[in-house]
Amino acid sequence: MKQNSIAKLWGFMLCSCMAFAQTNAPAITEDFKPSTVNQPGQEYPQVNSQGYARFQIAAPDAKSVVVSLGLGGAKGGTTLEKAEDGLWKGTTAGPMDEGFHYYHVTVDGGVFNDPGALNFYGSTRWESGIEIPAHDQDFYALKDVPHGNVQQILFPSKSTNTSRRAYVYTPPGYHKDKSKTYPVVYLQHGWGEDETAWSNQGHVNLIMDNLIAEGKIKPFLIVMTYGMTNEIKWGGMSSFKIEPFQTVLVDELIPYVDANFRTVATPAGRAMAGLSMGGMETHTITLNKPDVFSHYALLSGGVYKPEEIKDKSKVKLIFISCGSKERPEGVKDAVKTLKAAGYNAVSYISEGTAHEFLTWRRSFKELAPLLFK
C-alpha cells in the first residue's frame, strides 16, 4: 500500500469524530431521553434535542470516572462528578455531532464499557455506543416496509487455512423469484471494526429497504466481510499488506458468493466500496484487479487519480465522499479532475459531520441510486 495513500487516510482519521465544546453555548434544554442504543430498560446514557449527552455510572468506591466521548473534562473526555446518592453523573460540555459514536468509561484508570449502553465492535474491541438523533435520520429508520435479510455465511479460505465469516444482505423478494439475478456490492468496514459494522452501526440494511420501498434504487446484494488478514495496532497501517486480503476477497469470497447466490457474475455486476481503511482496501484492490469490479466508492478513504487507472473503459462509476469536517476540498478536486479526464465521477460531502458513521450512512444513501444503471 502506497505511503501517500496511508498519509491521506490518517489525515482523515485524525479529524475528530466529535464536535468540540462551543463558547457562549446556549443553555442546556432539559428534554433528555435514553439513547436509542441503550441496553433494554436502561435510562442512561441520555441525549437531548440539542445533541448533548448525559451519563450516570454506578461506581460507589471509585475516585475518578471519565467518559471518553470527547467533550470537556480531563484528557478530552467528560469528567463525571459523584452525587450525594453515590452515582457518578455528568453532561458533555457541548453538543455532539449527530449520529452514532463509540465511547468507553475510565474508572480509576481502568477502561470499561458503560453497563447502560449496547456494545459495538470498533477500535479493535467491543465499545459502548450512543446515538445522537439526526435531523435526517428518517432514511435509516426502521419502517413498516418490506425488509431484506442479513445472513451470516462461512466460506472456505485455503489461503488462511480456515473458514471466514461474511454477512450478506439480500433484498426483499430475493427468495420468491428464483430466476432473478442481482448485482453485488462488496462493502468494507473501517480500521478496528469488523463485518458487523455496516449493519449494526451503519444500518445499511434499513437504508436499502427504505430506498427500495421508495423506488429509488434497483435491488442488489451487499456482502460484508472482515478486512483484516494481518492484525495491526493503531498507528501501524504502514505494515498492512493488501495481498492476503485481496486473495481472500477476489479468489475465495467472490467465487463462493457467485456459486451460492443468484448474482450477476460479471464485472458490470460488481462494485467495491469501503469506509476509511475499507476505502484504502477498495482503492488498492480495484486498481490491482480491474477485471473484477466496475463501480468504485471511497467513503472517507482517499481518492483516485486518473493516471492510476489502467483502463478507463472498465470503470462505470467512481464515487468519493467525506464529511464536511474532514477534507472536502480534496474530494471535490479529485472528482473534478476525474470528470475532466472523462470518468463518470461523483462527489458527496456530508454536512456537519466528520470521520463517523453518519457521514458513511449518508454517503451510502447517495451512492446506492447511482449503482448498476
Rank of each mutant, 00 (worst) to 15 (best):
I212Q: 01
G202W: 07
F220E: 00
G236W: 11
G236L: 09
I207Y: 00
T247Q: 06
E252D: 12
P219G: 11
G215D: 06
M224G: 02
G190A: 07
G202L: 09
I222W: 00
A213T: 08
W198N: 01
K233L: 12
M208K: 01
I242H: 02
S239T: 15
V250S: 04
G215K: 08
K233A: 12
S239F: 13
G215M: 07
K241Y: 05
I217D: 06
S239I: 12
S238W: 08
V204E: 03
I232V: 14
M237E: 13
D251A: 09
E193N: 14
Y226T: 15
I242Y: 05
E214L: 12
V248R: 01
T229V: 15
G190F: 02
G192L: 08
I232N: 08
N205K: 12
N230C: 11
I232K: 06
E231L: 13
S238L: 07
Q246Y: 05
G190M: 03
G235V: 10
G190C: 06
I222Y: 00
G190Y: 02
T229K: 14
G227Q: 00
V248A: 06
N205S: 13
L211F: 03
A213P: 05
T229I: 12
E214R: 14
F220Q: 01
V248N: 03
M208Y: 04
W234G: 11
I207F: 02
